[in-house]
């Protein structure tokens, strides 16, 4: 029960302090779930992001459910989803009832823009860290570059990029095994 409470509180806290969608959650989750709680490793987090992008639904919800599952099975997964979705029930209700005009207030917009720029800087900081941890060796770099190419100039769907990279990961390893076998 205590563990479920911790799962809820961690994801709730991360959700209310993120501005700008799923990718912004990565640095916050890394800080809270990986470093502070130690429930999953950096590698797990990136695995979940990869899987969360090729399973249907909202990416950060999926990541929360994967993490919850790892920590406490199906109930943990449900608590993770509840924690990520409950802030928006509150915030949107507030906006719809009271704040719709207030949101267009210039001071509020200035404050939000300031936070958003900070969030972009935070993402850049995290990408550097993740790149060091998750993109390993020539094979990793090769898959990284191919994926960038597929995502940006070619604009291929995210799920296809992840699925084809899984296949590449397998093929590259298979090739190196064959080479080793020949020697």
């Amino acid at each position: 029960m205590k563990l479920l409470g911790q799962i809820f509180w961690s994801f709730f806290k991360v959700t209310i302090s993120s501005f700008g969608g799923g990718y912004v959650l990565i640095p916050l989750l890394q800080e809270e779930i990986v470093k502070k709680r130690g429930w999953i490793s950096d590698e797990d987090l990136i695995n979940y992001y990869a899987l969360g992008q090729c399973t249907p639904g909202i990416i950060s919800m999926n990541v929360a459910m994967f993490t919850g599952y790892k920590v406490k099975g199906k109930i943990g997964s449900m608590v993770g989803a509840l924690a990520v979705s409950s802030p928006c029930l509150v915030f949107i209700s507030l906006v719809c009832f009271f704040l719709k005009d207030y949101m267009e207030n210039t001071y509020v917009q200035h404050a939000i823009n300031g936070v958003k720029v900070f969030m972009v800087a935070l993402i850049l900081h995290t990408i550097i860290d993740l790149f060091k941890k998750s993109v390993k060796g020539k094979r990793g770099l090769c898959i990284f570059l191919i994926s960038c190419l597929m995502a940006y100039p070619l604009e291929i769907g995210v799920a296809w990029i992840i699925i084809s990279s899984a296949f590449l990961g397998y093929v590259f390893h298979f090739k190196s095994l064959v080479e080793r076998f020949k020697k």
Binding site: I123, L130, I143, S165
Partner: peptide, 11 residues
Amino acid sequence: FGMRAASVALI
């Protein structure tokens, strides 16, 4: 392994 590299690329 492949999916992680792609995931970082997408981020």
